[in-house]
Simulated assay, not measured.
Amino acid sequence: MPPSKLPPTIRQRRLGTELRRLRELAQVSATEAGRLHGATQSRISNIESGGYPVSADRVRTLARLYGCSDEPLIEALASMTGGRTRGWWDEYRGILPEPSLDLAELEHHALRMRIATTIYMPGLLQTPEYARALFRDVVPPFDPPTIEHLVSFRIKRQAVIYGEQPTPVTAIIHEATLRMGFGGPEATRAQLDHLVTMSEHEHITVRVVPFGTGSYPSSGSGIIYCEAEVPQLDTVQLDTDIHSGYVGAQPQLIRYRAVLDRLEASALPMAKSRDLIQHVAQNL
């Protein structure tokens, strides 16, 4: 796909959304914004849809034009400019769905992540065998080449938790996830052993919510909460059997922070979580 025809990335769309939010808070129309900024209404609309590259200086100018005085927010928005940044995930464009590529880009730029799962292990902590077993169970089934593309993509996403400056991750996993048995006892045991090993890294926290804790907020969705330079630019990815989606509106971000806080409060401490994981592995 030619660069000019590529859809805007999630980062470009979010930048445009935030600029539109600032304009609307200032009660400035797109036509008036264009007149004040020396641009057309269509140019402002294209910027706000993420379809037109915008410079850091233009972002600063627009933000101040809209009366924004939040310097950390303005600089965080300015850092999101520069057009499309080609990442490793672009190798999969046209092969895998755009939301999958969006997630890889989101994780790449996240400063910290909080993840909650009920049924499946967090993708960033999966083994290839476990991931392959999940993709083989999809209905309707994927063909073998697609399964291998999905597995390789999932493993490449894990680069963010390795290297010299790995992204800190907190994973809150329900006990049901440990006992699902995807791929059979051998694959499950290897996955649980891998989970214990990863939990020993300083930047990775794994905590288990045991059976018997009562209510489990948002139990129908997997949650990946990606923290940005400022809280206003955080993004949540929600994953269900029906669809994956992204939310970034302030009321939604506040809600999912509270959900994750509640889940962490219900989870076992790290040492006891590790003991439970090992207990389940030993009794497969």
Rank of each mutant, 00 (worst) to 15 (best):
Q282F: 10
S221P: 06
Q165L: 15
T235Y: 03
S218W: 06
I161N: 15
I242C: 00
L62N: 01
R43M: 15
D70A: 01
T40G: 13
P122W: 02
V247H: 07
L111I: 00
M121S: 05
P72I: 00
K5P: 02
H149R: 05
I155E: 12
V236N: 05
E175P: 01
A171T: 02
G123C: 01
E148P: 02
P2Q: 10
P128A: 11
P140Q: 10
A258E: 15
G248T: 00
E48T: 11
Y225R: 06
P210W: 02
Y130P: 13
R23V: 08
E48F: 06
S4E: 09
P128C: 02
L22D: 04
G222E: 10
R64I: 05
G212N: 13
G16P: 09
E18L: 03
T118M: 11
L124V: 00
G38H: 07
A265N: 15
D90W: 15
D241N: 04
A33T: 09
G34L: 15
L19F: 02
R136Y: 00
R93Q: 14
V138M: 12
A187E: 15
F153S: 02
E24D: 14
H279Y: 05
M80N: 02
L62I: 06
I147L: 08
R21D: 06
A104C: 05
V208L: 01
R35M: 11
P53D: 03
E24C: 09
Y92H: 02
R114S: 13
P3G: 02
R179C: 05
T213K: 07
R35V: 14
L195D: 09
I277V: 11
Y256I: 12
M198L: 13
G183P: 08
P168H: 12
F142A: 13
P99G: 07
V196P: 02
I115N: 12
Y130S: 07
T118N: 12
Q282N: 12
Q27P: 06
G212H: 13
M113D: 06
A39C: 09
Y52F: 03
L192S: 09
R86N: 08
G248P: 02
A30Q: 07
I173G: 01
V209F: 00
Q250I: 01
L6W: 09
L124D: 03
E75G: 07
P97N: 04
L192E: 06
Q278I: 04
P140Y: 00
Q282K: 13
S221Q: 11
S45A: 15
R84F: 11
